Every structure is written in C-alpha cells, then in structure tokens.
Computed example of a mutant assay.
Amino acid sequence: MSEQKVFIFGAGYSGKAFARMRPQAVAVIGTTRSREKFAGLEAAGIEPFEFDGRLSPEIRAKLEETTHLVVSAAPNEDGDPLLNVAHDAITHHMPLLRWVGYLSTVGVYGDYGGAWIDETAQCRPKPGRSQMRLDAEREWHELGEETGRPVAILRLSGIYGPGRNAFVNLANGTAKRLVKQGQVFNRIHVEDIAAALWFLADGEYGGTFNVTDDLPAPPQDVVAYAAGLMGVAPPPEIPFETAQLSPMARSFYGENKRVSNTAIKALGYTLSFPDYRAALDSMWADGSWRGEGDGDKRSPIRRA
C-alpha cells in the first residue's frame, strides 16, 4: 500500500480513537478549536492544529500532503464548516487526496416507529441538527462526484466507549433508567467507529454505511446490565412521561428505529463489539471503562 497521510478535521473522541489505531508509519494530523486540547491529541498520536473558522497557511500545507481526509465536525446553520472555507482547497489543491470519510448520524433517518431499516431507507429527519447533517452529507457526496474521489458517509448510532458509558454514569451517580414503552436505540463502541474508518479508508470505499451494533435495545436494559457487572443496585425505573428532561433529551426519545449495518458487513467488516453486552463485558474486565487518565493503562490499539 502506498504511503498514507491522514487529516482529521474535528479530532474529538472518535477521531482520537481512530488515530490510536494507526500503523506506526502513518502520519495523522488533526484540528481542534482549542489549544488546551493539544495535549490530548498529541497523546493519541495526532499532530494538532487549531481551527478558528479559517484555513491557516499551516493547515493548507498539511492538506496538500493529505491522502485520506476524515471529517468529524458538526454542521451548523451556515453549512459544513470545512466545506465553507476549504471547498476550493479540497477540489484544486489536494493532489494526493484518495479518500474522504464523513462522520454523520443515524438521526438523518428520522422516526420509523421501531421498525428495522438499512441504508436504503428514506431519510426524513426532523428540522434542525439532523436535517443539517443530511444536507452536509449531500454536499460531501457532490464534492466526491466533482473530484472523482470516493466519499464514505458513516452514519453512527449512539457512541460509547472508555470514559463514556453506563459504568461511568453509575459511578458518578448520574445514571437513570428512563422507560418508554417500545423504545429502543442502537449503539456503537468508539473502537468500532475507528476500525470501520480504517477498513473503509484502506479499501478506499465510497458510499453510505450505517456504523452501528447488531442489538438495538431499551436504554434501561443497558444500565441494568452494567449495574449487574459492577455489583451495584440499578437506579429505579422512571416513566418517560413523568421524567424531567431537557427539550433536546425529550426529542431524542421522539425517534424509534432499529438500524441495520448491512452495507459495511457486505464489504467484509466484522464488528468487534456487536452488542452492548459484549462491549460492557470487555470494558469491565480490562478496566478500560474509566477512560484515559483514569486507570486505563492499555497500550494503543494497533491494526494487524
């Protein structure tokens, strides 16, 4: 395989997990909006740059050397923040670019009343964040057609992993068991996001892929399972109808669907954590549930 130089625009939780899986010879550059986060990026093996809404000469120079571009930044009312300032740079000044990966959300599908859906399902998002995501997806697809480069859209379900999971919520006393009849959610462990990104990048696959687990489940079941592993009593169940929730949290429960990962599996990708039980079992056994800087002493993950 020819040399890879990866640029992550918006190197947050998922981006850092992706960087930790890099082969040693692969250079990874990433942006953040705050210099205070540079140390965290460097610890994950990322050369950090600050993005303040403009393309600095230093970022432009790194983009010119980039072979694989990963975009993990949320759009806003003005559109995709990278395309707004870098469309010309990407189309005309990235001669080595071979592949683009865009991290989106299964929220673009909207509500399906608990039915199973796959990548062929119609997108009918609510106005707001999910509609902006769908609009950004289309912009990146159009850029791929314009440049002749493959663009992979990864539609992610609820992200969890080290430092962000039911164990952490139980330990700090914020875990809740909200019960809404018939409600289920898909989830995805951050290491499967990272591994799926590398799989698609290495194969330079384009298209739309649901990156999600195989077991959509009621959220209260996840909390109860984690409590069982910890040997603590789960918090009491709270009826959704009487729960005190923010408008955003309540809207989250307004969508109910079971999302299949048909497309990426058809290419040969296998989930490391196909359901929340496998992931929680693993994180509890190795202590990685605490997250970085809090007892997680594992070596960086490497691809085979």
Rank of each mutant, 00 (worst) to 15 (best):
Y276M: 04
L170T: 08
Y160M: 04
P219A: 07
G30L: 04
V211M: 10
W198T: 04
A226H: 03
R187G: 03
P274D: 05
L63I: 10
P236N: 10
W140H: 06
V222L: 13
M230V: 03
V71P: 06
D111F: 10
I193G: 02
G53C: 05
A166Y: 07
N256G: 11
A171Y: 02
R164Y: 09
W99C: 10
L134T: 14
G144D: 03
W99D: 06
L245E: 05
P150S: 07
V100N: 04
T105F: 11
V259G: 06
F49T: 00
F199Q: 07
P234R: 08
R138V: 04
G268N: 10
E77M: 08
T67N: 06
G110H: 14
A152Y: 00
A121V: 12
K265W: 00
F18G: 01
P23E: 15
L82E: 06
L271E: 10
E77D: 15
A285K: 14
D192L: 09
A266L: 02
G144A: 09
R277G: 00
F273W: 13
R35A: 15
I117G: 04
M21Y: 14
S246H: 05
V108R: 01
A201I: 04
V168Q: 10
Q4L: 12
P218H: 10
T32R: 04
D78V: 01
G228A: 08
S2H: 12
D78H: 13
R155V: 08
I238K: 10
D52K: 15
A263P: 08
G79R: 12
K297M: 11
Q122M: 11
I301E: 14
N210H: 13
G203T: 00
T174A: 07
G148S: 08
Q122E: 15
T105N: 14
V28M: 02
S130T: 13
A285P: 03
F167H: 09
G113H: 12
E42F: 03
E77V: 11
A17C: 06
T174R: 13
P300M: 14
Y13H: 09
R277C: 03
A61M: 11
N169V: 00
L97A: 11
T66I: 08
A227K: 11
L63F: 12
V26H: 02
R33F: 09
S246A: 10
A39Q: 14
F51P: 04
A73C: 14
L280W: 08
F240H: 09
A266P: 05
V184T: 13
L280H: 14
D286H: 04
V151G: 02
A115L: 12
E3S: 12
T31C: 06
M248D: 02
P75R: 03
G30Q: 08
N210A: 01
N261A: 15
G173I: 10
R250S: 12
A249R: 11
I8H: 01
Q4C: 05
T67E: 02
D192N: 10
I301D: 04
C123V: 13
F199C: 13
W198E: 03
